[in-house]
Amino acid sequence: MSEFFAMDGYAAFLWPSYLITFVAIVANIVIALKAHASARAAALRRLEGDPAGTQT
């Protein structure tokens, strides 16, 4: 197992590459879901006639 993580000496380059890719994948999911949730909340406020809903 430790041999797998050592990646024959390339661990210091390989795992950070995988980490930043993972971060980008997760971050973009979070950004998209948050954008949709806040746009939805703002749209609902607009429907209620709340002027705050016009500020997105």
Binding site: I31, A35, H36, A39, R40
Partner: peptide, 8 residues
């Protein structure tokens, strides 16, 4: 998902 947000 971002497109839906943008449309709203």
């Amino acid at each position: 998902v971002r497109l839906r947000a943008e449309i709203l």
